[in-house]
């Protein structure tokens, strides 16, 4: 039986119909849009798609083709893409990804968003207590991309300061989408007028994305076969944790990842977590680490 499954999978492979996943053949001019899950990846994807491919009218029906993910589209799809290719992933650091836009989000909001996403994916019941979701989230067991901290830290340690690495905060994107989009433009070497930027921001707004999701949820790998009573594009806000998250959970997240959160500018509310003695390790690992 296993042999037959492998034969079928092998035939798919022969025609490049399998998802390449971690075996994606990378080109040096590929640009990767990377983030931990539920950190604004899809929003950034719509922004970039609307910026680069206005004539294709990006929506939930074609976003997987315009900016595909290696876990969703086939090897053949990737081979047929025009270059330079724009690819989205949630992968922790990969040295083959040379040009990277990395979106980071406050892990307190990420935890909540992922909790609701797991309800949508039918992985947990509606009455599943958040307090029992959180330890798994902290341990990095709620997905295959490591914990929030591991994912973020692996990228920062290897690439922070590299001119081919653009770090964006989801919260800054919310506050001033246009100016963050302008950073993306200059990173990609794309010229865009202020009017064009405004148009792209408008076309990629959560309102527009929601409107499209309502009629196209069955056309995108992200939303297909999930609960349709829960939207993929949820609140698109920052700071939900302040009202929705149990205090003990906030404390637990800050205790685990306080120093990195603080460095990213996420204010801690449960007292300054100095971290263990070993964190006083003398020198920066992140500056000038990579050429």
């Amino acid at each position: 039986m296993a042999m037959i499954r492998r034969l079928i999978a092998g035939t798919k492979r022969a025609f490049g119909l399998h998802c390449p996943g971690r075996n994606l053949a990378v080109f040096p001019d590929d640009v990767f849009l990377v983030s931990y899950p539920k950190s604004g990846n899809t929003w950034a994807r719509f922004l970039i798609a609307n910026l680069l491919y206005p004539e294709r009218h990006p929506d939930w029906g074609n976003i997987d083709r315009l900016i595909p993910g290696p876990e969703v589209m086939s090897k053949r799809d990737f081979a047929r893409m025009p270059r330079p290719r724009f690819i989205r992933t949630h992968d922790a650091f990969d040295p083959r990804y040379k040009q990277v836009i990395y979106v980071v989000r406050d892990p307190r909001d990420v935890a909540l968003s992922q909790y609701h996403h797991h309800r949508k994916l039918k992985l947990i019941e509606d009455n599943h207590p958040f307090e029992s979701f959180l330890p798994r989230f902290l341990a990095g067991e709620t997905n295959v991309h490591g914990s929030w901290k591991q994912n973020v830290a692996s990228w920062l340690a290897a690439r922070y300061g590299d001119p081919r690495f653009l770090l964006l905060r989801y919260e800054d994107m919310l506050v001033d989408t246009r100016s963050e989009l302008a950073s993306i433009c200059s990173f990609l070497g794309v010229e865009a007028t202020p009017e064009r930027l405004s148009k792209v921001v408008e076309q990629s707004s959560p309102r527009e994305m929601r409107k499209l999701e309502q009629v196209q949820a069955d056309q995108c790998a992200l939303t297909k076969d999930t609960r349709q009573d829960l939207p993929f594009v949820r609140t698109a806000k920052s700071g939900n944790w302040k009202s929705e998250m149990p205090d003990s959970s906030v404390v637990a997240i800050e205790a685990a990842w306080g120093p990195l959160m603080k460095w990213l500018g996420y204010e801690l509310v449960s007292g300054d977590q100095a971290g263990p003695a070993e964190s006083a390790f003398p020198v920066s690992a992140m500056d000038g680490l990579v050429r």
């Binding site: 990195l260 460095w263 971290g275 390790f281 020198v283 920066s284």
Partner: peptide, 18 residues
Amino acid sequence: ESAETQLAATAVLGEQPE
């Protein structure tokens, strides 16, 4: 590097056991 960039190292490296 000087103390300023050390913050970055502490942020990334200084983690309590998860």
